[in-house]
């Protein structure tokens, strides 16, 4: 059963020449325009945001989620 998964449902490996792997990596890596959420000035926590806001004289935008099993990480994306 362990070996069966090797044949079922897997896409062809890109292994072979280094150039083929680099090409696959570049195709999979998002362009900067797709990573816009990382242009925001993220604080590590609400506590950190408040400290920085007072120091830098800037407002805070806080997003909160409730009623979920896991807290998630809105910045990184697993949420």
């Amino acid at each position: 059963m362990f070996l069966a998964f090797l044949a079922a449902g897997t896409l062809p490996s890109q292994a072979g020449q280094p150039s083929e792997i680099l090409k696959a990596y570049e195709a999979a890596r998002p362009a900067d325009r797709e990573l816009g959420v990382f242009q925001l000035d993220w604080a590590d926590s609400f506590k950190d945001a408040k400290a920085r806001a007072a120091r830098e004289n800037r407002p805070i935008f806080l997003v909160c989620t409730t009623q979920l099993k896991d807290a998630g990480n809105l910045r990184e994306g697993h949420c």
Binding site: G36, L40, A43, F46, R58, F61, L62, D70, N73
Partner: peptide, 16 residues
């Protein structure tokens, strides 16, 4: 992103 340029952005998520 443009509207939030002045802001420090933060997140809090409730777990369980």
């Amino acid at each position: 992103i443009e509207a939030l340029r002045p802001f420090i952005v933060a997140f809090w998520g409730q777990a369980n």
